[in-house]
Computed example of a mutant assay.
Amino acid sequence: MAKHWVVATCVAAGALAPAYLAARPASGTGYELAGHIAGPDGGWDYATVDPTTGTLYVAHGDAITTVDLASRAVNPVLAPAHHAHQVLRIPGKTELFETDGDTGTTRFVDIATGKVNAEVATGKKPDGGFYDKATDQVVVMNAADGTVSLIDPASHKVTGIIEVGGGLEFGVPDGKGGAYVNVEDRNVVVAIDLKARKVVKTIALTGCEGPTGLALVGGGTRLISACANDVAVVTDPKAGKVVATLAIGADPDAVIVDEARHRAFIPNGGSGTLSVLDIAKPAAIRVIGTVKTQIGAKTGAVDPRDGRVYLPTATLARPEPGAKRGKPVPGTFKVLVVAPTAS
């Protein structure tokens, strides 16, 4: 996430014309805005759901905020932060990690007490991050210096650095010891080998300007990148080319996947909409409609247990001169709840 609110050789562009440009769809998605959960003031970036505890984690500016999804009880400050970007529970452990943009560190926090067990220097403005099961590493994208940091979650030590270059955004593991990362200012997605610690492929995202959110779907056969020019591009990573371009909304910053229900969601903060994608057929991923949400809702998370989508947002004031978006109005922060409609 290059903006705080709450993934070698380039291929010739001419060879990567999108297979089609989908028309902007009408509503009728099987999802509806079902309410909201009020929370404390502050900015926001990524959010994640831990289905084992039923907890929503929000990277909430100067704090990690949690929500018990059963009771909707909010803990405003599980732990303090400094321009938090990513917050994610490490599977099988009692810790989460948080990327701390202002301090250039990745912090490991006890999920029960909020105690900061370690602060690990990673790079300039660490942003997106994920846990890679195949290599048992926490992987962090450093947006301001173009590097990817690899951290051993047991020792809390950096075990390697991968030089990528550019403004790194979100990244996703491939489950085999590799990963893909969007590079926002180069309009590409790079494939990296986490074991060999090197870039192995660069794919031009033809028709995509400013890729931010990223997801790997279809058993690893398709990548979905959310782009700042109101489209999402679908890439075949094996072939190394864009295979579809989908019309979405303005200012997206995440791609959220619900594999069990064959759906992906792209929250569009600039237009206040949630694009709903059918991903059941990897060769024919399509937008099936939109849900009206709220201006500013550009990131979020899905609860795989029931398919509910949670989107942090707030009422935004008029932007100051030169600013891309307005500041959140005090007393208006909330997490929107988008739920599957009854069949």
Results as ranks from 00 to 15, higher is better:
184 E>F: 13
187 N>Q: 12
232 A>T: 01
110 D>E: 06
123 G>S: 04
10 C>K: 04
128 G>D: 01
11 V>L: 06
194 L>P: 08
241 K>L: 01
239 A>C: 11
212 T>R: 12
80 P>A: 01
69 L>E: 02
267 P>V: 00
204 A>K: 01
4 H>N: 06
127 D>N: 11
15 A>M: 02
88 L>G: 00
142 N>V: 07
27 S>F: 09
312 P>D: 10
18 P>G: 01
265 F>H: 04
6 V>A: 10
25 P>M: 00
130 F>H: 10
13 A>V: 00
229 N>D: 13
154 A>F: 05
124 K>I: 06
302 V>C: 05
7 V>C: 07
54 G>S: 04
75 N>R: 15
305 R>F: 06
146 G>M: 12
191 A>V: 09
87 V>Y: 02
322 G>Q: 06
226 A>G: 13
323 A>F: 12
200 V>Q: 14
181 V>T: 04
185 D>T: 08
165 G>Y: 10
198 K>G: 15
7 V>Q: 08
341 T>K: 15
176 K>W: 07
192 I>S: 11
119 E>Q: 15
172 V>A: 09
276 V>T: 05
167 G>Y: 13
335 V>G: 09
53 T>K: 05
125 K>C: 01
67 V>T: 02
298 K>S: 15
135 T>E: 11
245 T>H: 01
65 T>C: 03
33 L>N: 03
343 S>M: 05
223 L>S: 05
302 V>H: 04
176 K>F: 10
269 G>R: 02
211 P>Y: 06
4 H>T: 04
6 V>S: 07
3 K>L: 12
93 K>A: 11
41 D>V: 10
176 K>A: 15
38 A>D: 14
121 A>K: 11
113 T>D: 04
129 G>A: 13
312 P>S: 04
71 S>L: 01
36 H>A: 15
259 E>D: 10
160 G>Y: 03
166 G>W: 07
70 A>W: 01
342 A>H: 14
44 W>P: 00
